[in-house]
Every structure is written in structure tokens, then in C-alpha cells.
Amino acid sequence: MVLIFGGAYQGKKDFVLAQFGLKKDDICVCSPENAPDFTKKCLANAENFVWYCLNRGVDEMNYFRCNSALFEDKIFIFRDIFCGVVPLSKEERAWREATGRVMQYLAGKADRVSRIFCGLEQRLK
């Protein structure tokens, strides 16, 4: 498993396409409304999948722990949503915290963890 994260507009998807020789069609861009397509190699905007879980009352940590086999070969892309002011809305606070917990869990499991900064890779694991 690979975990890629970074701020908005830093070139995370382009990095994954180039680095892992993927095509755009290999990437599923997660949405808050629909379940992702787990047949795809890469799940981008995975923070939206966490929102999807919370919205349906799914315990996100439990979900990722129970389904770890499903994710062994995946590349996750998360947007760094963690450095702003604490959000005013309760839902957004819960989402930010849940996303952070999931990222820490996945980073622990991943073979490779990288932060993307202005299109450049900063390898953290």
C-alpha cells in the first residue's frame, strides 16, 4: 500500500500517474455521496470517502481495520486538510479528525508514504 498526501493543487494525482505508470482511468476520485470503485488501483480524494463513511454512521477506523486486505495493493491520495483553523461546524470537525486518524493508520501499514509539495515528492517512509 502507498499513501500520498499534500495540500490542494500540489500535483498529487499527476505525481501518482507518472510515478506508478497509471492511466487516468486507474484512479477513482472519491466523492462524499457515493461509494468508491474499489476495483481501481488508486483512490484519490480519500478524505471524501471518510466523509461518506461518517455520513452513513460507519465507524471509519473499524471499517479500515476490517477491510485491510482490500487495500493492500492500493494507492491512497489524501488532501492535507489539517493545518487550518478548527472548523466551526461539528460535522467538519469530526470529518477532519476521522480523516487524520485514518491517515495515521494507513501510514503505519503503508510501504511508502510521501508528501507532495509543489509537485515534488518528500518521502516520509
Partner: peptide, 26 residues
């Protein structure tokens, strides 16, 4: 680029433009 805010469209456009500037300058 690293917060969870939802900005108005024009502000988001500005962030996107600055992000592109950063990547291309880099």
C-alpha cells in the same frame, strides 16, 4: 493549501492559480 475550509469560488480559483504557479515554478 492545507486546510479543510470550503472557500467561495473566486477564492478557490485564486488557490488553484497559486498552486499551479508553485508547481510550474518548482
Amino acid at each position: 493549501f492545507s486546510d479543510s475550509c470550503r472557500y467561495p469560488a473566486e477564492t478557490e480559483h485564486f488557490r488553484r492559480l497559486l498552486g499551479a504557479a508553485g508547481r510550474r515554478l518548482a
